[in-house]
Amino acid sequence: MIIFYDGYCPLCHAEMRHLRKRDKHNKLTLVDIQSPSFAQTYPHLDWHALNARIHGQLPDGRIITGLDVTHQAWKAVGMGWVYAPLRWPGVKVIADWCYIKFAKHRYTISYLLTGKKRQCARCIPGEPNEK
């Protein structure tokens, strides 16, 4: 599975770091949409849509978004049960609405929760490049 995420968002970057640690079987490819090479590598994808919310591409080529990506990513590393309740009927509608609000205000929310401002993932000392 390919995950297209915003490497400028401290919370998004942290989640990718946690996924990378747990991805023992290399099931995930993490792609920072803020990377200088992104547009050349993925010219067929709409950067603005990807920047509005997290996107993923399943092995069969289907594109998924939002919490479906989060659930599938954690499922791929053996921890899908953590996010599975967010995909249950009834809960899914509310969780998706909350995620859309989070995505729209992710830099402010990240700052409030982590104290870190929007930053370039490549500028964080000691962080390995995404695979």
Results as ranks from 00 to 15, higher is better:
Glu15Leu: 12
Asp68Ile: 06
Arg118Phe: 05
Tyr42Phe: 15
Cys123Val: 10
Ala103Glu: 04
Asp96Tyr: 00
Gly90Arg: 05
Gly115Trp: 02
Ser37Phe: 06
Asp60Leu: 08
Leu11Glu: 05
Pro10Asn: 06
Gln34Met: 12
Tyr83Lys: 04
Gly90Ala: 07
Thr108Trp: 13
Ile33Met: 01
Lys24Leu: 14
Trp47Phe: 13
Asp96Lys: 03
Ala14Asn: 09
Gly115Lys: 15
Thr108Tyr: 06
Cys12Trp: 07
Trp97Asp: 03
Leu58His: 01
Tyr107Gly: 09
Ile3Met: 01
Tyr8Leu: 03
Tyr107Lys: 04
Asn129Asp: 14
Tyr5Phe: 15
Asp96Pro: 00
Asp32Lys: 09
Ser35Met: 01
Ala14His: 11
Trp88Lys: 12
His13Phe: 14
Leu19Phe: 14
His44Phe: 05
Phe4Trp: 07
Thr29Arg: 15
Arg118Gln: 15
Cys120Thr: 12
Gln34Thr: 15
Pro89Phe: 07
Arg118Thr: 13
Trp88Gly: 04
Lys21Arg: 15
Ile100Arg: 15
Arg118Tyr: 06
Val69Thr: 05
Ser110Val: 08
Arg53His: 12
Lys117Cys: 07
Pro36Val: 02
Asp60Asn: 15
Met79Thr: 00
Trp74Ser: 00
Trp47Thr: 13
Ile33Gly: 03
His44Pro: 01
Lys92Met: 04
Ile2Ser: 04
Leu30Asp: 08
Ala76Asp: 04
Gln72Gly: 02
Gln72Lys: 10
His18Trp: 09
Ile33Ser: 04
Ile100Tyr: 07
Arg118Pro: 06
Val69Phe: 13
Trp81Phe: 14
Thr108Val: 06
Gly66Trp: 01
His71Ile: 00
Asp46Met: 00
Thr29Lys: 15
Tyr42Arg: 07
Phe38Ser: 01
Pro10Phe: 12
Ile3Val: 15
Tyr99Trp: 14
Trp47Asn: 11
Asn51Pro: 02
Cys9Tyr: 03
Ile64His: 03
Leu50Ala: 11
Gln40Asp: 13
Lys117Gly: 08
His44Lys: 06
Lys101His: 14
Ile2Tyr: 08
Lys27Tyr: 05
Leu19Ile: 07
Tyr5Thr: 12
Lys104Thr: 10
Tyr42Gln: 06
His44Thr: 04
Gln119Cys: 10
Ser35Ala: 13
Ser110Phe: 06
Gln34Phe: 00
Asp60Ile: 07
Leu86Gly: 04
Pro125His: 14
Gly66Glu: 10
Leu28Ile: 10
Gly115Tyr: 12
Arg53Gly: 08
Arg20Pro: 07
Tyr5Lys: 06
Ala52Val: 00
Arg118Leu: 05
Met79Glu: 14
Trp74His: 12
Thr65Cys: 09
Gly7Met: 00
Ile2Asn: 04
His25Leu: 03
Ile64Leu: 01
Ala103Asn: 06
Lys27Cys: 10
Pro125Gln: 13
Ala84Arg: 09
Asn26His: 12
Ile64Asn: 05
Lys24Gly: 07
Ile2Thr: 02
Arg20Tyr: 14
Leu67Trp: 09
Leu112Met: 11
Leu58Pro: 00
Arg62Gln: 15
